[in-house]
Design a protein around this nucleic acid. Structure first.
Lengths: 207, 207
DNA sequence: TAGATTGTTAATCGATTAACAATC
DNA sequence: TAGATTGTTAATCGATTAACAATC
């Protein structure tokens, strides 16, 4: 595969969407799909889909389309989901609980492998089969379990400090639900998932 | 204001980020800010910030910068947050609860004004001061309370049906947490907030 | 005045889409 | 073979950044 073009962030954001639809097709026993059919269902231009996929290899057959199983396998590989991806969650509040219990990740080879909170009252309590641990154990656990991804569901005031600790411990990607921008080194990626900002930009389009 | 250029989605996504930082500056009694200082703190190019803001009006003073209060007021207006924006939430599961209780919206003039769920067991139960209502009452409530925005925290299987009902009832913007693409008319906006897709695209960047 | 910073233009960069030869 | 659909090139479109005159 790998044609070593540079892959844009926009492409990487679409790959999971493709994967999701293709997994659905597997479930309903569809074995072949065209870029046109995918485009229709995902609201993406078919040429876009072909270009996105072609950047990683020649997965399709001219005149036929794409083999669903083969494509699923390849996108999984591209997204590094072929072996279990462990994720740490920081902040066992309402949102943290909700995300921990929503274990739809599992089927995609992602798993929350540790949960931390600063509140002593919560330590030892079980969430989704894991005991909430004190922040003090964070670095050690992350290194011991070789965790590279983190989800932060903590207040904005704590975000930068916690983020610094996570990076110190070896985290390379953060999904940040805290309503604040965080500064990170170039080799660490942050995706923002703040609900308020997301809603506010929706409000712009009203009337 | 309004120089009737077409405003890109990227700009609209940044406005809430600007607003958040400016609100923070208000809290710490900073009255003036430059595009450079904002850029440093938000990781956005200062020219970008100036261009974004200039699209809506001349908010700054050459040689001085931007008056924080004045800018907050104007961005609020641009984002239509000057009067209360009511939001409906569909799906009172873990995630729905978490989002309802996380009422940081309030200070930004947004408020969850009704909550619906299909499970009869949940009807009448209180969440964040609201009683969970049956889906059957959705259209009526949305129209009665003149609600234009919706948050969907429901399973993927129900997403398209619920989304159709919401649009039928007059909803114009949807924040969709369900892990599926939904089809909507051109005048309705959807923002996607699925945790799994977001995490999966992060995984791509590992090693 | 000198220094700072905006608003805006022009240059660059990147992403999307259309079109079509290649080929199953 | 005829029809369908890919992979890819070229054209278009849009977004970001640099640079600087205007001016506080």
């Amino acid at each position: 595969m790998a044609k070593h073009e540079k892959i844009s962030e926009a492409v990487v954001r679409r790959l999971p969407i493709y994967l999701r639809y293709l997994s659905y097709l597997q479930q309903v026993n569809v074995t072949t799909v065209s870029s046109q059919q995918m485009g229709m269902n995902l609201d993406v231009n078919p040429a876009q889909i072909r270009k996105d996929l072609a950047a990683f290899g020649d997965f399709g057959k001219k005149g036929i389309g794409y083999d669903v199983n083969y494509l699923v396998e390849n996108i999984r590989q591209i997204l590094k989901l072929t072996e279990e991806v462990r994720v740490v969650l920081v902040g066992a509040g309402h949102l943290g609980h909700a995300i921990s219990n929503y274990n739809a990740y599992m089927k995609d080879n992602m798993r929350i492998a540790a949960i931390f909170d600063s509140d002593p009252q919560k330590w030892g309590k079980e969430v989704a089969g894991l005991q909430i641990q004190p922040m003090e154990e964070m670095a050690e656990t992350i290194q011991a379990k070789n965790i590279k991804l983190a989800i932060m569901t903590i207040p904005a005031t704590a975000a930068q400090t916690v983020c610094d600790q996570l990076i110190q411990a070896g985290i390379k990607g953060i999904l940040n639900f805290a309503p604040t921008t965080i500064r990170v080194p170039k080799d660490v990626r942050v995706h923002y998932a703040d609900v308020t900002s997301n809603l506010q930009s929706l409000a712009y389009y009203l009337t």
